[in-house]
């Protein structure tokens, strides 16, 4: 997942002495990308890979038992998405993810704000939180199975919560701590009340950190929601994948995995879009500084 180390910036001087690399071919390097370069060629490469897969599996170079040809998978996929229960399963996974994520936000952000607000609480809790963060949340699955059962959405939601809450708390805490003291001083000098200081200065400057925490938490949470239904059973898409593998129809397994991937992609892209919209001012600020 994205690292937080900033990327080195480009030269800021108009006369840019000897900064850009390579023997200068200004027209090429400065021109934008053509449609073909951005979409056409990549699409062609994907088609070639799929075509190659089809060829290799049909001709028996790759064992078609374990690796069904692309068209067979495609057919299974199309047949599958017409089934209501597949959509119900997707819905269950996404719903438990959303619930767990919402809970982790409601709990995590205030907790992070609180813990980050004083130096003492930061020193007390940061090491423990960082320690907990290193524990793979999946380890708690058997315990939660016992406590919550596998029937409803609770298990997947709880697993999501467990995976998402730590990055959210920790990142929020860092966001509060990373406040520029000069900015705070400026606020105090202008006579802002404690509440105003918090909402007008602390919160906005912590926002990029919180956004990072949300992004990390959302991704890990989705991973865990799928894992929960896969390992423990229940209503999610994970269970359907296991089901397909028991029924001895490998192409269905592939098809459902592809479906899960599409779901994952959709969620990630949506999150990225939301984040960039909310933080467009901050993101460009980030790029100019680093």
């Amino acid at each position: 997942m994205g690292s937080d180390v900033p990327v080195h910036g480009s030269s800021q001087k108009a006369e840019a002495p000897l900064v850009t690399g390579g023997t200068q071919r200004i027209s090429r390097s400065r021109a934008g990308l053509t449609w073909w370069q951005r979409f056409g060629e990549p699409a062609l490469v994907v088609l070639c890979v799929i075509g190659g897969w089809e060829l290799l599996t049909r001709t028996g170079v790759l064992p078609a038992q374990d690796l069904p040809p692309a068209t067979v998978i495609g057919a299974a996929f199309i047949g599958d998405i017409q089934q209501l229960r597949v959509w119900e399963a997707l819905g269950a996974t996404l719903a438990s993810w959303a619930i767990g994520l919402a809970a982790s936000i409601i709990v995590g952000i205030p907790a992070g704000l609180l813990l980050g607000s004083s130096r003492l609480s930061y020193l007390l809790f940061q090491p423990s939180l960082e320690f907990i963060r290193t524990i793979p949340s999946i380890a708690a699955l058997p315990l939660l199975i016992l406590l919550l059962g596998t029937r409803g959405l609770e298990l997947a939601a709880a697993m999501t919560f467990l995976g998402a809450v730590w990055p959210i708390v920790i990142q929020t805490m860092y966001g509060v701590r990373d406040l520029d003291p000069t900015t705070m001083d400026a606020g105090r000098a202008y006579g802002l009340s404690r509440l105003q200081l918090f909402t007008r200065i602390v919160l906005p400057s912590a926002l990029p950190y919180i956004a990072t925490g949300l992004r990390l938490g959302a991704v890990v949470g989705l991973l865990l929601s799928v894992a929960a239904s896969l390992i423990a059973g229940g209503k999610g898409i994970g269970f359907l994948i296991v089901n397909a593998s028991f029924s001895g129809v490998p192409e269905l397994v592939y098809a459902r995995i592809v479906l899960t991937g599409i779901m994952g992609l959709g969620v990630t892209l949506t999150l990225v879009a939301i984040e960039s919209r909310l933080l467009f001012w901050h993101a460009s600020h980030r790029r100019a500084v680093t």
Binding site: L222, T260, G264
Partner: peptide
Amino acid sequence: RDVSPMTEFVRAIPTAALVPLGLIL
């Protein structure tokens, strides 16, 4: 640019979902 669509797609698949695949293969 050419390889990203495929890597991004596989990257989006939750690890747990790949276990049945690993078992088949």
